[in-house]
Amino acid sequence: MRLIAEKLGGERGGEPVFDDINFQVEPGEGLIVTGANGSGKSTLLRIVAGLLPASSGAIRFEAADAEEFPSVAAASHYLGHGNAMKTALSVEENLKFWQEFHGSTHLGIDEAIEMVGLPEVASLPYGYLSTGQKRRISIAKLLVSYRPIWLLDEPTAGLDKASETQFAALMRAHLDDGGIIVAATHIPLGLEGVQHLTMTGQR
């Protein structure tokens, strides 16, 4: 399994935001994408996920098991700005839905919310949670179904220091498990031994 970007270019609203981005990520490796606001971090992630077309270059994905993961999208968890959770449903109902919809059950619901340190909230409506708690439940969503690639867009937005550390440990465990992480962030994620890519934007 390998994720490769070759001379990748992206545009937003018809304006080019970056071009000639190259990287290669192997199992157990992480890639931290940093850069100023507007340098195209989110756009890059959305192109990698396949939500946006690349304006030039290509994303290549080589999976050992092409049956199960025919594309990057199929092999990825995408954690965007939105948490993809419904405020009217309980935390458990939300996670249960994503587990059933995504398939490839990994951790149990209880186990996953235990991992993000919120075991008490399972039966509460998602809307009652604070911003940071919501983000943590959204992170728990990465754990309830298995995907080898995690595409994370500002994953630690709204998290406190303790939760950041906790999340770093979860990412480390995913990498040690042979997973791949591509994360766009402007806050250090506390992840050692990973590649870095600095987006400079289009001049």
């Binding site: 996920a49 396949g50 939500l51 999208a73 990825s76 995408y78 939105g82 948490n83 993809a84 419904k86």
Partner: peptide, 19 residues
């Protein structure tokens, strides 16, 4: 609209190969 605002729609689109 609701699914788009909270990011659910992205995930629904990304699950295309399964559903």
């Amino acid at each position: 609209q609701d699914d788009r605002e909270d990011g659910t729609l992205d995930l629904l689109i990304l699950s295309e190969s399964r559903h």
